[in-house]
Design a protein around this nucleic acid. Structure first.
Lengths: 159, 159
DNA sequence: CAAAGGTCGTTGCGTCGTCAACTATTCCCG
DNA sequence: CGGGAATAGTTGACGACGCAACGACCTTTG
């Protein structure tokens, strides 16, 4: 095993700030949605993903991937949202194993009435604190970081 | 209700990249720790927090706060870690309600052997993709953002 | 000093998410 | 075409976590 490249003070500070802030931010957004619209951040995002899909529907598999969740988690999320009337399941015609999750009109309405408060929260907590240049930096940084993460081959194990 | 200040294209891009990447990053770190050391990221961080505390011990209350968790979650985490032998509970002398969670030698050893792989993963996935300037930016941005989040008064509600 | 009110840590309960296993269907290839 | 491998979605078992409520203890106040 080679010598460990520890984080220097600056890196540690950045790492902690990033981790802590992210947790607080997600929690704040979750609470805002829960309080104002009785929906979790995760479920809200699922509705958003569906709303942006062609015909407002998606195969379960693709929905899971887009939401960065597992298939089982997606099954349960869709079941939940179906009971609330915001999503419905539609059988797939060309693949009889498949199921589409489709945003209902009620789901679209829910999204429309919930989005403004959510976006406002995202602004208040995040973007209002950043300069235009920082926003660009943010997108740039994380765009690059995600590259290494989405490549499954890039192993890290130390053995 | 005033007109919503929607996110522009650049902001949306940054927001998505940030959210997705963060999820992937946390998951990758979790998997690395789980695979190489049979410990979750959350539990690992708990050990780190304790290791940095005076006498390697902390009141449950303070530990919860430092870990950005609830008291009940911390109770369960400490119980878990206690069963693994990495933490022990020590009664508080000056406050008989209180309990200290204390890192055991075994816990310190676990941390020592686990940290290199974890730090390496953090490097590989995050810091190796960033320039020194970006690291500074990262710390700066999130330092500022956390200010608004740690102030409980800063309400966002639209109601 | 006694009583009211707060804090500490824990626990029951409900929710959410993952893994592994299962059924049904489709794909691949001889 | 036929049979094994792969894939889709679901479910059961399980673990983690938050909220609310609880008993024990401390603090404040009259």
């Amino acid at each position: 095993m080679e010598k460990t490249r520890w984080l220097d003070a600056e890196e540690q500070r950045a790492w902690r700030a990033y981790l802590d802030t992210t947790r607080l931010l997600i929690r704040a957004l979750d609470q805002q949605l829960q309080a104002d619209a009785d929906i979790s951040f995760a479920d809200y995002e699922t509705l958003v993903i569906l709303s942006e899909a062609p015909d407002r529907r998606m195969r379960m598999r693709d929905l899971a991937e887009a939401a960065l969740a597992t298939r089982s988690g997606t099954t349960r999320a869709v079941t939940r949202l179906e009971l609330l009337g915001w999503v419905r399941r539609v059988e797939c015609e060309d693949d009889r194993r498949g199921t589409h999750a489709e945003l209902t009109p009620a789901g679209a309405a829910k999204l429309a009435e919930t989005a403004p408060g959510h976006v406002e929260a995202v602004r208040t907590h995040l973007f209002d604190r950043l300069t235009g240049d920082q926003v660009r930096q943010l997108g740039g940084m994380f765009g690059r970081v995600s590259e290494s993460l989405s490549r499954p081959g890039a192993t890290v194990r130390g053995g």
